[in-house]
């Protein structure tokens, strides 16, 4: 019998004895709302230890400083104005002559996002391409994951390794490979010309199609792996029971396998969709001047136009766009984690 799970003990009183909180300790707790007293199972035994606080604080502070704080900076900058200076933006706060702090909030950048159709088109196009790419990945990845999960046991690991292997090679170079294949005098066109299927090279490069191919190619492993994980965990006897009750294999797949693999479908789709929306390298290398995607727009605003405030506003807007799928994804992840945890105990 596993010991029962330990729940946190409610009152987070200041720790007794030598580790009672110093002024800095209180300040820190107050600032972060982060407890010193952590009820622990395993390593720590309910007594308060500075070691444990340190273990928690180091990664937490790192991420707060280099991941959390930067977003506040972006948010702040999105309300300033671009100027030709170093750094190229106006300060949000300034001191007026009579010593009063002046807060200058500038909504120009957000207005621009609403008024200029360039941004609208880029947002919608990003969502559209990411959605189509996700569906393509699912259509290709599901049968692959299914086939691997049904392969003989000794082949499964090598087959999975072959899915993961491209991931370990350079992403940039894998995208580059498609330039050689898709361009006008590229391998695919040469091959089709040689076959006589076409008389003139097809314009494949610098289109939405080439961007789509690039995204599907790069993100396919992220679809296959979670799908394989759920499909391989599925109890084979469920299908046997269905067959025993008179269900034909095709119907059993639709009524049993597919619904039970939905967690994998959702996880895989999110893992493809979310990063595709903000993708920069693929639209930049494979897309044309008309392939507007939001990651590329942000890059251009920042590097070519040197307009940091507008780039920040684009970033904030993109984040707002992605917040719903990201939160859903995290919820789903937590639930799966909880389920495995319960399965263990």
């Amino acid at each position: 019998m596993m010991p029962p799970p330990v729940h946190p003990q409610v009152p987070l009183s200041p720790p007794p004895g030598p580790s009672s909180p110093t002024l800095i300790g209180y300040l820190w707790r107050w600032l972060l709302g982060f407890p010193f007293v952590v009820r622990v199972r395993g390593l720590a035994m309910g007594t308060v230890s500075w070691g444990r606080a340190l273990v928690t604080a180091v990664p937490f502070l790192w991420l707060l400083l280099f991941f959390g704080l930067p977003f506040l900076v972006v948010l702040k900058l999105s309300f300033s104005q671009a100027v030709l200076a170093q750094p190229p933006y106006t300060p949000l706060f300034s001191w007026a002559e009579d010593g009063i702090m002046v807060l200058r909030i500038n909504f120009q950048n957000y207005l621009l996002l609403v008024q200029d159709s360039l941004y609208w088109v880029a947002y919608l196009n990003s969502l559209r391409i990411a959605a189509i790419a996700t569906v393509c990945c699912l259509l290709l990845g599901y049968p692959m994951a299914y086939a691997i999960s049904k392969a003989k046991a000794e082949f499964r690991i090598p087959l999975l390794m072959l899915i993961i292997l491209p991931f370990w090679t350079s992403f940039l170079i894998r995208v580059y490979a498609w330039i050689g294949i898709l361009k006008n005098n590229g391998l695919l066109n040469n091959f089709l010309l040689w076959l006589g299927v076409i008389d003139d090279p097809l314009p494949l490069m610098h289109t939405d199609f080439s961007v789509l191919i690039g995204i599907v190619y790069s993100y396919l492993p992220f679809m296959v792996l979670p799908l394989y994980a759920t499909l391989s965990r599925m109890d084979e006897s469920l299908l046997e029971a269905a067959a025993d009750l008179g269900c034909r294999p095709g119907k059993a797949f639709l009524t049993i396998t597919l619904p039970l693999s939905m967690p994998g479908v959702i996880a895989g789709s999110m893992l493809v969709f979310i990063p595709s929306v903000g993708e920069f390298v693929i639209p930049d290398l494979l897309g044309g001047p008309n392939t507007l995607m939001i990651g590329k727009v942000l890059w251009t605003e920042f590097f070519s136009n040197k307009d940091w405030p507008v780039a920040s506003a684009v970033a904030v807007a993109t984040l707002l766009l992605l917040v719903v799928p990201i939160v859903r994804f995290q919820k789903a992840q937590e639930e799966t984690a909880k389920k495995t945890e319960e399965g263990r105990t």
């Binding site: 407890p35 991941f67 893992l271 929306v277 903000g278 993109t318 992605l322 990201i326 995290q330």
Partner: peptide, 23 residues
């Protein structure tokens, strides 16, 4: 185990996994 701030901690840890690189 569970502690106050765990949600914030988990969010900070997992958010970079899905955050667009440009951002």
């Amino acid at each position: 185990g569970r502690f106050r701030g765990r949600t914030a901690f988990t969010t900070l840890i997992t958010a970079p996994l899905v955050m667009p690189e440009v951002i």
